[in-house]
Amino acid sequence: MNPLAVGNSPEKGQLRLSWPDGREQRLDHVELRRQCPCSQCRAFRLQGLTVLVDSRVRVVEVHAQGYGVQLVFSDGHERGIFPWAYLARL
């Protein structure tokens, strides 16, 4: 299920998703960076390690990818594509 709308608020540090069932979801930029699904970040978490993220990190670009979004973070990280189902579970 794809959201009806995606909004990014760098000043609040939140990504907003509006789902077809009426649910509004707000996801914290820092937590999104910690939960990046790219292979490098996943491997780090699978080793039981925590991805260290500066509390000032923000999503600076959002690129639609059909089945999800690629998020570009202010720390330069841009490798992860976040599937809609993954975002809905966060």
Rank of each mutant, 00 (worst) to 15 (best):
L52F: 02
D75F: 02
V72K: 06
A5L: 08
D21C: 06
V69N: 03
S39N: 14
Q25K: 10
T50M: 13
G48H: 00
V53M: 09
C41R: 04
P37Y: 10
E24L: 14
L90E: 02
R23M: 14
V57F: 06
D54T: 08
C41F: 07
R89T: 12
L17F: 10
Q70G: 01
F73S: 02
L4C: 02
V62Q: 02
V6F: 12
L27Q: 04
H29V: 12
K12M: 09
V57H: 03
Q25T: 15
S55A: 15
L52K: 08
G13W: 14
D28G: 08
T50R: 15
S74M: 04
P83M: 03
R33D: 07
C36S: 04
Q14R: 14
V62N: 03
L27R: 02
R45F: 06
E31I: 09
R34I: 03
D75Q: 05
A64Y: 03
W84T: 00
G22M: 14
Q70L: 05
G48D: 00
G7D: 09
V53T: 09
C38I: 03
K12C: 10
E24K: 13
R42S: 07
P3K: 09
D28F: 06
R58G: 07
L71N: 00
A64F: 02
Q25I: 10
L49P: 01
E78F: 11
Q35T: 04
R45W: 04
S55K: 13
Y67D: 01
E31R: 11
E78D: 09
A88D: 04
E24T: 12
E61G: 07
S55D: 15
L27M: 08
C38M: 05
F44P: 05
S39D: 14
S9M: 11
H29C: 13
G80S: 06
V59K: 05
C38A: 06
L17P: 08
Q47N: 11
L87D: 00
R23N: 10
G22H: 14
P20H: 11
V62Y: 03
R56D: 03
L4Y: 00
S55N: 12
N8C: 15
R45G: 07
L87Q: 00
W19K: 09
L15C: 11
R23C: 07
L17C: 13
R45L: 09
L4R: 01
R79Y: 08
E11D: 13
T50H: 13
S18I: 12
G76K: 02
S18P: 05
V53C: 10
V30N: 00
F73I: 02
R34L: 06
L49H: 13
Q40N: 11
Q25S: 12
